[in-house]
């Protein structure tokens, strides 16, 4: 943690009495309300932003439960209809020895969302912790989360495309299950959660918030 402590000494915009524009990056004096270059509203770095993160995060988590319990796909073929949950589908793919597809589905539908939840929660907790503030690693983590979060929608897209394409009447037809909507909501909400996170909090550090 010594490295963290060393990094604490980095002077931040807030220390210099400035506020950065989140859109174009230009810094302005703290009392400025509007970016003179791009016209975006300048927001103060504030713990209140964390509430939005937590709220979206919690909503996403709530929707993630039915997304796993309800069937994702309803496949009707001549041989009867079949319903699969996410995990059930993965298990079935494994039993059919489609390990690669199973891995893709598992990563996109389980690993990524779950790690996203963990990552966001970690970040949100970390910015409130003085000792962990001001880390480049946190910034990297945040960038990864923001980048990779949208890929969770792969599952939803697969369901949507299959439902649209595979409509061959009695022979075979695929319908999305209730879990598809829940999963899409869950992914969307976690993306909102990630977007609500103000990365400037990583650098600000709670100690100075109380100290100023």
């Amino acid at each position: 943690m010594g490295r963290n402590r060393a990094e604490v000494t980095i002077q931040t915009a807030r220390d210099a009495g400035l506020v950065g524009c989140t859109r174009c990056g230009k810094v302005w004096p703290q009392q400025t309300h509007e970016c003179g270059r791009c016209g975006a509203t300048l927001k103060r770095v504030d713990n209140a932003g964390l509430q939005a993160v937590w709220a979206w995060w919690l909503a996403g988590l709530i929707f993630y439960i039915p997304a796993n319990l309800y069937p994702m796909l309803r496949t009707s073929t001549l041989a009867g209809s079949q319903q699969n949950t996410i995990i059930g589908g993965v298990v079935e793919l494994v039993t059919h020895h489609s390990y690669f597809v199973a891995a893709v589905v598992f990563v996109a539908s389980v690993v990524i969302p779950v790690s996203k939840f963990i990552a966001i929660a970690y970040l949100a907790l970390a910015v409130g912790n003085e000792r962990r503030a001001g880390s480049h690693r946190h910034l990297h983590l945040f960038e990864v989360v923001e980048f990779i979060g949208r890929w969770s929608m792969v599952d939803v897209f697969v369901v949507a495309i299959l439902s649209a394409l595979v409509q061959l009447g009695a022979v075979v037809s695929i319908h999305p299950g209730p879990a598809a909507a829940a999963f899409a909501l869950s992914v969307a909400l976690t993306m909102l959660s990630a977007q609500s996170f103000d990365p400037r909090l990583i650098w600000r550090g709670p100690a100075r918030t109380t100290g100023s």
């Binding site: 209140a48 709220a55 979206w56 909503a59 709530i62 929707f63 909400l189």
Partner: peptide, 21 residues
């Protein structure tokens, strides 16, 4: 006063999920 209205979102989500359940 510190609570944001954003907290309504998880409440709605919870309500929907429980309703479905």
């Amino acid at each position: 006063t510190r609570l944001s209205v954003i907290w309504l979102v998880p409440l709605v989500a919870l309500a929907i999920t429980l309703g479905i359940a």
